[in-house]
């Protein structure tokens, strides 16, 4: 039963983002048509490949991040915290660097307009 819940939630959330993103209905309906294959838009393998190549490692990282990996990492970190002072400090510093790197790259990409921090202004 849990799996049905997952599928349903993912579907609703994804569709929600489409509605959230477009401000005019023409583009919105067009996007839905494309998503469900009811459009005249050619499916061009060359360019899909190009787009996938462009974001290849980011997509891989994202896919891994979607899995319940956080739980595994947390367990590993907790083990390190509990097994001696040196390991604990190491785990702590690694966490800090990771957090800062993610924060920094996300900020950089926001500034470079890859993402829109003002998405909510659209309403």
């Amino acid at each position: 039963m849990k799996i049905i819940g997952w599928i349903f939630t993912s579907f609703v959330v994804l569709m929600g983002w489409v509605i959230f993103y477009y401000t005019d209905t023409a583009s919105l309906t067009y996007m839905f048509k494309v998503l469900f294959g009811f459009s005249d838009r050619p499916v061009n393998d060359l360019f899909i490949n190009l787009t996938i190549n462009e974001y290849f490692y980011l997509l891989m990282a994202a896919s891994v991040g979607c899995m319940p990996i956080a739980r595994v990492v947390k367990r590993g970190l907790n083990n390190m915290y509990n097994s001696g002072r040196v390991k604990m400090e190491f785990a702590f510093i690694a966490t800090c660097i990771f957090v800062l790197l993610v924060l920094f790259t996300s900020s950089a990409m926001l500034v470079a307009k890859s993402y829109n921090p003002f998405l909510y202004f659209r309403f």
Partner: peptide, 13 residues
Amino acid sequence: FMDTSFKFTTLMA
């Protein structure tokens, strides 16, 4: 930041 972002995207490609 723009530079960093572009370098990061290039790295991800």
